[in-house]
Structures are given as C-alpha cells and as structure tokens.
C-alpha cells in the first residue's frame, strides 16, 4: 500500500475501505465485499475450531480440542460467575458474540487482512443487539420492576431522582461505549502499525527503528485483540446480570 508509492505517502486508513470483491464501484447492501469475505473466513475458522477441532471427541484432548474446550470453558465460566446460574441459558448467544469478535480480531492481524470489527457499523450492531436483547429480557422477566435498576433504594430518598437520571443516562450510553471501545481499539492499533510501516518504506536504512516499533505494536495488538473480545463479552454478561437481577 504505502510502501510501493516510493514517496512519503502513508494511507493508514486504506486498509479499512469496504470494496466489492468482484469489481465494480457500487456497494449495494447485497454486494459481496471484502466484509463478506472476511466474515465468511470468520465463520470457517469458528467452525474449524469448534467442530473440526472437536472431531476426535477425545477424553484426553488434542491441542486444537484443548483450545476449543478452553474457549467453551472460558465463556461458560464467565457467564456463570458474572450473571449467575440462570444466565447459562444465554450461553450460546454470548459464545456467538465472543467467538465472532475474537476470531475477527485475530484474522484482522494477518497481513492484507480486513478487520471487520474495526468498523463502527459492525460493533454498533453487536452492541445494539446486546442492548435491545438485554432491555427486552429485563422487561419480559420482571415487568416494570425492571425499572428498579434505576431507582437505587440504598441511597437517601432526596438523592434518588438525581441518581436515577444519572443511571438512565449511563444505561443509554452503554451501547455507545460498548461499540466504540471495540472498533476504536481495533482501528487505532491497525492504523498505528500501518503508519510505522509507511515510515519503514520511506526511511531507508534507518527503517530498522519503525520495523522494531511495528513488531512491538503488533505484539500489543495480539494482546488487545483478545482483551477487547474479553471486555465486550464480560460487559455483555454484566448487562445480562442487570436484566436477570435488576435489584442492586
């Protein structure tokens, strides 16, 4: 990308452009794009890990089976610990989110990859799905008693309306922070790597420094890729807990 232009032209955001896969310029809602390609790869990797990896069904697991079981146990325990026993019903839903995000994040770290989770459109849909589901679940399970989530009875009575206002605002800010946190982390890291790579292309011999920086940031990004998937999932569990047990 930036490397082959010869000059000091860095386009760190080019990697995020949504393009049609089979030529053409228009992106209709149904057009197969690089989004389609990388999401399909995500599905394939998830299936490969969780189905093909478990093919042996061994009591003593192979390496891939261990990874699949670790992922299962990781998310299962997270729901159990955060949302309680009755949250386990929603395990497939939370596991879907976790697997999609973590696999997309890691696939995005491959060279020339397109990171689907770096797009606010994707993360906003994920976060809104959680927000809408959790809110609906809260009202279905508890009716209007769900609103007690905002009415903090531990606080002195005069303070409660103020706190309720703050609680309501923070409740509605949740999907915003939930989605921007993930997309922002993914985008920033990838952009920084691309900027350093652009320096490496322009600096000649001294490009050792930016290459070292790219390696360092890449290591950081590997960590961030997992941590952001974890954060998204655990926040989902926390919101789920609010819906299941609205009383503080």
């Amino acid at each position: 990308m930036a490397e082959d232009t010869g000059g000091f032209a860095i386009h760190p955001m080019d990697q995020f452009i949504v393009e049609p896969l089979f030529g053409g310029d228009t992106v209709h809602w149904y057009t197969p794009t690089n989004v389609t390609l990388w999401m399909a790869l995500t599905v394939i990797v998830v299936a490969a890990l969780l189905i093909a990896g478990m093919r042996g069904r061994a009591i003593v697991p192979s390496r891939i089976q261990s990874i699949a079981e670790l992922a299962y146990g990781f998310v299962y325990k997270m729901i159990e610990d955060v949302a309680g026993r009755d949250g386990v019903k929603y395990f497939p839903y939370v596991m879907t989110l976790f697997m999609f995000i973590v696999v997309s994040n890691f696939l995005g770290l491959l060279p020339w990859a397109f990171t689907t989770t770096s797009h606010i459109a994707v993360t906003a849909v994920l976060a809104l799905a959680v927000f809408v589901t959790v809110t609906a679940l809260g009202f279905v399970l508890h009716g209007t008693r769900f609103l007690k989530l905002f009415w903090i009875e531990a606080a002195p009575l005069p303070l409660r309306p103020v706190l309720a206002l703050i609680e309501v605002i923070s409740y509605f800010v949740r999907p915003v922070s939930h989605s921007i946190r993930l997309a922002g982390n993914m985008m920033a890291g990838h952009a920084v790597i691309k900027v350093f790579a652009g320096f490496a292309g322009a600096l000649g011999v001294a490009s050792v420094l930016p290459i070292v920086a790219v390696v360092a940031v890449y290591g950081l990004e590997v960590m961030v890729a997992f941590i952001q998937a974890y954060v998204f999932t655990i926040l989902t569990c926390v919101y789920l807990k609010d819906a299941l047990h609205p009383a503080h």
Partner: peptide
C-alpha cells in the same frame, strides 16, 4: 472509511448473516 455510511447496509447485512450462521453452528452442533 468507518464513517462511509453508504457501506453500512452492506456491512450490517453480512454481519447479521454471519452472526446467525455462527449462532446456529454453535447452538446446534458445536
């Protein structure tokens, strides 16, 4: 490119399909 709103329907469409497929793979088989 994240704020290129014209690509949003496309991304959302494919995302929903992806999520549904993963959900069925996970809940039915894996």
């Amino acid at each position: 490119p994240q704020l290129e709103f014209s690509t949003f329907p496309n991304q959302i469409f494919w995302l929903v399909i992806t999520l549904v497929v993963i959900y069925f793979i996970l809940s039915r088989i894996a």
